[in-house]
Design a binder for these strands. Sequence first.
DNA 1: TTTAATTTTCAGAAAAGATTGAAAATTCAG
DNA 2: CTGAATTTTCAATCTTTTCTGAAAATTAAA
Lengths: 168, 168
Amino acid sequence: MKYSEGKEKFIETWGTLGSQWGVNKSIAQVQALLLISPQPLTTDHIMEELKISRGNANMSIRQLLDWGIVYKKSVAGDRKEYFIAEKDVWKWALKIGNVRKQRELNPVLDLLKDISENTDKAKTAEEKEFAKQVKELNVFTQQLGSLADKVFLTPGGAMLFKLLKMFA
Amino acid sequence: MKYSEGKEKFIETWGTLGSQWGVNKSIAQVQALLLISPQPLTTDHIMEELKISRGNANMSIRQLLDWGIVYKKSVAGDRKEYFIAEKDVWKWALKIGNVRKQRELNPVLDLLKDISENTDKAKTAEEKEFAKQVKELNVFTQQLGSLADKVFLTPGGAMLFKLLKMFA
DNA sequence: TTTAATTTTCAGAAAAGATTGAAAATTCAG
DNA sequence: CTGAATTTTCAATCTTTTCTGAAAATTAAA
């Protein structure tokens, strides 16, 4: 397989994977591109390489900066902004996991807790089953969430490292 | 909070969470509805409750059956099909995790492996960085995948249980 | 069989989500 | 400052995904 072919497939597949897991395709592809680039790239370079508009490129980069998995890098004598990806798989995987856990899972945890605690005492069969399932889900997600926090927030990914060593 | 209010919020939130993680909203909501229902429900009941079309309800149910987290149940003296959700959080969470791992992550693992093994020897800086990142990603996902398989496939969710007990 | 009930399919409609591109805002060298 | 370079914003457009509803297929009671 030629480099260009492998590269194309990689970027394409990374974008598809993103879509399937709720990450915008362009964003995933920009990360892929930056990940395999040895030098920092400009917005223009990214636009050209991925054939996307300036607006799209800019938004995607912002999002990646926001997630903390892409950094700005200024180049002496050039006014343009350059961007470089976090290259350490462990680091960026944990950051993505953490961001998504905090932003998307935590609100659900809060709702489950709220429903568990504040719903009127169950009387009918429907109400009892509802209470039961929400409670179980609450306990379960609580535990998973707690594990996730440990894994994602332990410095240096030490927790994930330990896990993999122990179980994988 | 009233039961009806809690129920509505729960179903709504579950749908939203699904969307964010690449699961169709209707599918997630049908699961939510079945999950909290003490009896099996018919397609018509689901349509009415969630205000969705017959086609949508039917497709959603098929998908859930396909994932193995909803079962058919026949009711004596009624020709209609009834459906009931897998109620054990552990069971269905592991099944969903497993199905998605196999269908969406495994192809990526295969591609990474393929690229790693079959790409022409790297010569330029670009090519070297590409090879390096793909290799790292390959190792990393291999390990994560192996852990995931253990967690998802150990009977009775014993592995996840152990993990939670140890680390959460 | 026949036929009425039920389920499935799928073309087209609607909604959601992604992308563009040009105007506005910002930045900074001179 | 000035103005050219660069970045950001966002309404309009395009694409993809989801959903509908009615026709076709299937099922099973009579």
